[in-house]
Design a binder for these strands. Structure first.
Lengths: 355, 355
DNA sequence: TTGAAAGCGGTACCAC
DNA sequence: GTGGTACCGCTTTCAA
């Protein structure tokens, strides 16, 4: 008949006070090494694994876990190389403070929000969620330290981001400079509603993924400034940011008449999909159609052809977010750092238009 | 001067009891819808985000998080495709019960064990750790539901695994049947001590990664049964299970005289490294040297040449582990399921030996 | 349907 | 160096 062992059990057994046992675990300097050893040894015998983490959490207010809110479910996070790199960077940074990552999905459902509300974490790191995601609101309501990566922009919350507009302008300008006028755009989801297809001006303006708003807007302005009629530029939104869906979207674009001579894909996964679609349709890249991506994800430099893209520091961004969390947890106040710079990497998927 | 809002604050404010407010959140059926709405509305006004997860955790004994113990640090987990698939499967399964994943690394350090000990989770899922990993012992000491994937084998803990011996035999037999006699082995770490190079019998026998022990042993027996002298079979251990390190190990093997006509790599990452090393050394695969891998990880079917390998259900394994955790958490008792079957997938990286 | 009260297991301050 | 003792904020019988 083994009773549950607690500090009190142990204290009674040893004839010391509960506080002393607690100190044996948390403040070795508060008692003699000798007594401490005796306590620890006896604890071991009794199968006491140390102070209950839940109780400790309640009392101390710290859990040792940082909540990580993931877009579109955990599966997605693990399959998108840019998300994996982010997690990698974040984890490596948090590990040095002994913090674990508590992964939760934000998929727009009430349930998610409820889970977030009930999650015992010391801080939240949020990446790439829609402006109106309920799980974000739930995290915010906990009033704990918080950092956002990319989106959504939240007042008073440090945001780690890149210069999206810059990147989009650079990609667009490259195509313009090469002489392209029939340009099409392949966009990541503008809202998490599974929509796939041509986007109209309204949907574009009210995109809840703010990064997409920013990038699209930058493309529009650059094209307009060059005299290209934005109204005539086809923008296809992909329901999921992966290669397969990107290929699907690219099919639609390449099927149009006149066919575009260049595609701006707003992520590399979509760009890779476009490369595949072009290949399958017998459209030569960059001979018949140029493709430019965004991210410089792993693997795109060895794609066929190697992808021209906008490079951003994927892993480093995660680390920066981690650093900020750590600082916040130390009680420091942190302002949003300047957006990280991006750079256009020109490879072989872009060239002058045909003829 | 905003005081911290708690159930009690709210209860006083509304002139009801604390229990009623609690019920408003946890047992809607225990009070009138009307009162409940009033409570929730007022909570919102006061900026009360709901019952404190830590306190709830202490009282109810549940946290809603499953601890996931990862080999070699989180970065590694995110960069190994087989690990990512496992996490994906696991996450998808746990998500349906609203459980989050709390990731922690087990890297052999005392610190890790300490963190694990202090982690507030409802259960642990452990994957591919050495027999003597302290973090495993710490998790075990918490006396919570637990599942192991692959290794270590722990008495009384359900283990989800594959038929490693079968797989290793199949790979070895294939090479024997093709006529190979000069066979070499490229192994994943046998112990987490960073050792890289030729393995002697002692190290082999005392490997703390039991899966490696099993696979090596199966290879040995198969070769011995075919009259190949195991003492003359070079086994190179790679310090890290990734392509780069695999290439390093393969260099060492291919440099030997006589050069092996076949390499059994005990993971696909190592096999991919071997392919690269062979390519860089001008060794034709499979013309001069065959390579067989293990896992059928994503991407190996499109390697150059497509890799012959032992296929195992990578994602499904994670799901199975998740199912078991869920059952355990429901209070059901679960026995170790039969090992999942593997199958040899013959592609183009294997062929008869030269001459 | 609502309220009172007994813990859950620890932590940390303060006195001895 | 050690012990006494208020809480931490909530859940959950049980009785009203």
């Amino acid at each position: 008949m083994s009773e549950r062992v607690t500090l009190l059990t142990l204290a009674r057994d040893l004839g010391v006070s509960r506080a002393t046992v607690s100190n044996a675990y948390n403040r070795p300097d508060q008692l003699s090494a000798d007594l401490r050893d005796r306590i620890l040894a006896r604890a071991d015998q009794l199968g006491f694994a140390g102070p209950d983490p839940r109780a400790r959490g309640l009392r101390s207010g710290r859990t040792g876990a940082v909540g990580v809110l993931i877009d579109q479910g955990l599966s997605y996070a693990f399959s998108d190389p840019t998300a994996v790199l982010y997690l990698d960077g974040l984890a490596s940074e948090l590990q040095s403070d002994g913090l674990g990552l508590l992964l939760h999905a934000g998929t727009g459902s009430k349930t998610d929000a409820e889970l977030v509300r009930a999650a015992a974490v010391d801080a939240w790191v949020i990446r790439s969620l829609p402006d109106d995601e309920p799980a974000v609101a739930a995290a915010l309501a906990q009033q704990r330290p918080m950092v956002v990566l990319d989106q959504p922009e939240l007042p008073g919350v440090p945001l780690v981001g890149i210069d999206d507009a810059d990147g989009a302008v650079a990609a667009t300008q490259l195509l313009l400079d090469l002489g392209h006028r029939d340009i099409a755009v392949l966009a990541m989801p503008l809202r998490p509603d599974g929509f796939q297809g041509l986007v109209d001006a309204v949907r574009e303006r009210y995109a809840t993924y703010s990064v997409m708003r920013t990038r699209l807007c930058a493309v529009e302005q650059t094209l307009s400034a060059a005299g290209v009629d934005w109204g005539a530029v086809p923008v296809v939104e992909c329901a999921v940011n992966d290669m397969d869906t990107g290929a699907l979207g690219a099919y639609e674009l390449l099927d149009r008449t006149p066919a575009p001579t260049a595609i701006i894909a707003l992520s590399d996964q979509l760009a890779l999909g476009a490369l595949r679609a072009a290949h399958e349709m017998g459209v030569c890249v960059p001979g018949a159609c140029s493709v430019v991506g965004f991210d410089d994800a792993p693997g795109v430099s060895t794609a066929l052809p190697p992808l021209t893209t906008v490079a951003q520091p994927l892993r480093e961004r995660g680390q920066v977010a981690g650093e900020i969390v750590r600082a916040l947890l130390r009680g420091e106040s942190v302002a949003t750092p300047p957006r990280l710079p991006v750079s256009l990497v020109v490879r072989d998927s872009t060239g002058p238009p045909p003829r």
